[in-house]
């Protein structure tokens, strides 16, 4: 099978893994954004972005390290081992945090 095929499979597998983290982190960001808006009477998009950078590693920890660590073996069979998955989650959070710091 072509190399590109494995690359597409890895991206699909990663999204299956990360999708849950993404949607729940986004939900928590929405709650954090609404709470901040209610308390300070202003809506700051930076708060939502920073919240995401903060919540996503916690969601990773909650769903996979504490919840179902056995699922790591499924993703490992598809070529995504645990340290790599953590690197991607941490990398996205760090990238988002850095972008907000640069832009604001």
């Amino acid at each position: 099978m072509p190399k590109n095929y494995f690359c597409v499979i890895k991206i699909r597998a990663w999204w299956l893994f990360y999708g849950k983290i993404f949607w729940y982190s986004l939900l928590l960001c929405g709650v954090a954004g609404i709470a901040a808006g209610t308390l300070f009477s202003t809506f700051d998009p930076d708060t939502v972005g920073i919240s995401y950078a903060f919540f996503s590693p916690f969601m990773h920890l909650y769903f996979y390290e504490l919840g179902k660590p056995r699922e790591y073996y499924f993703y490992a069979n598809l070529g995504l081992i645990r340290p790599h998955l953590w690197l991607i989650t941490g990398g996205i959070a760090l990238l988002l945090f850095s972008l907000i710091a640069i832009l604001s």
């Binding site: 056995r70 699922e71 790591y72 499924f74 490992a76 069979n77 340290p83």
Partner: peptide, 18 residues
């Protein structure tokens, strides 16, 4: 370690498919 899953498949001792 990350290169080995392309040459080895592993069945974990409990159900592991989401």
């Amino acid at each position: 370690r990350s290169e080995r899953p392309s040459r080895i498949a592993y069945l974990y001792q409990d159900s592991f498919i989401p």
